[in-house]
Design a protein around this nucleic acid. Structure first.
Lengths: 191, 191
DNA sequence: CCATTCATGTAATCGGTTACATGATTCT
DNA sequence: AGAATCATGTAACCGATTACATGAATGG
């Protein structure tokens, strides 16, 4: 099957964003930041061609919106075929993907490194993950304050954001814990 | 700087494996499975050219070992320059990489799906992560039984495996917890 | 005047997966 | 006879990043 006729994961990410409301390529590039950016992201150079491909498949459609204060834009709308492709994908069988983590790869060889220098690096990452966790916690609190119990209603779009943020918080908390443990070991050894 | 003169992350992964002992391309392909495969992996089609590149940079060297019961093989040895490149990399500044997770991406759009079908998918993944966690726990126990307190000595290669396995266990446990929470929500809604 | 934001595209390159290709030996 | 393991490579393709390219409007 030639490439132009399949939907990539990025394609589904875009459909998922458009299911929440119409958007331009520029909007979507920004939308790939919060909170989607934590588990998926893309540059505009990837989004524009993908939108064209989705349109070629009849999954989305665009209208040109002229703005007098700003450049014109193409606003994309999810089509019925796009919505149905998205819902099919949501519950389709899925492989557990292979993971890649450079810091863990480094940890595997850390016995060759200077413990003090390694501890500094790992502490830095612990801080970064703590920061990310706090950021997600804040986002979730804001969402809860704004949407109330809707974040618990499985058929509400806010539940999707809620679920993703929960995963983000858990991921970062666990990563931070591991970094702290590792840095502790290294510091004890560096003495 | 042209491509042939830089070391890719895969290159460092190979150097890290060779630091533990000489190996052929075939050995390394297998070595990219346990326990390295949890956080990094590669096919032989990527490993063979990478070994040639590392040799071109003088970081590794090979000798042909003839075997009468099996095909000949090229056994690679880490060179001093390779060891030094590896140790430099270990403590070099590192960006926190962007994450990609298709299941979380799906969760973000899960409000459009049939809750019962979605719950089945998520329960499946919960099981897969529980299984992976148990696997890592078993690996760590085996390692501890075989190497004793060496797994706590930061300058021992076993500490690297220990650290990586710990991260794996924590990651899978946290992922499983999230899947169970999500599946619970979906099942409650499906009634 | 210069930087930033809004807005949309293309081209080059790289890292990784899948498929193609070959061939010996061992086990069932 | 056929499958599995050992062993090494190349080629095609695809997804993603970085860089190239253009241009209007706003804010400091």
């Amino acid at each position: 099957m030639p490439r132009g006729q399949t939907i990539s994961t990025l394609g589904y990410a875009i459909l998922g964003l458009l299911a929440r409301g119409d958007a331009s390529g520029y909007d979507l590039t920004g939308g790939m930041k919060e909170p989607v950016g934590f588990f998926w992201n893309a540059q505009h150079s990837q989004i524009y061609p993908e939108l064209a491909r989705l349109e070629g498949l009849g999954l989305v459609a665009h209208t040109v919106v002229t703005q007098d204060d700003r450049p014109d834009k193409k606003v994309y709308t999810l089509q019925p075929a796009g919505r149905s492709a998205l819902t099919t994908w949501l519950t389709a069988p899925m492989e557990v993907p292979t993971k890649r983590d450079e810091l863990v790869l480094r940890a595997y060889s850390i016995w060759l490194a200077d413990p003090a220098a390694a501890a500094r690096l790992v502490r830095e990452h612990a801080r970064a993950h703590a920061h990310a966790r706090e950021h997600f916690e804040h986002k979730l609190k804001t969402l809860e304050a704004r949407e109330g119990k809707a974040i618990w209603q499985v058929d509400s779009p806010w539940f999707g954001a809620h679920a993703a943020l929960r995963r983000g918080i858990g991921f970062e908390r666990e990563y931070e814990t591991w970094c702290d443990w590792l840095a502790g070991c290294l510091e004890a050894s560096a003495g």
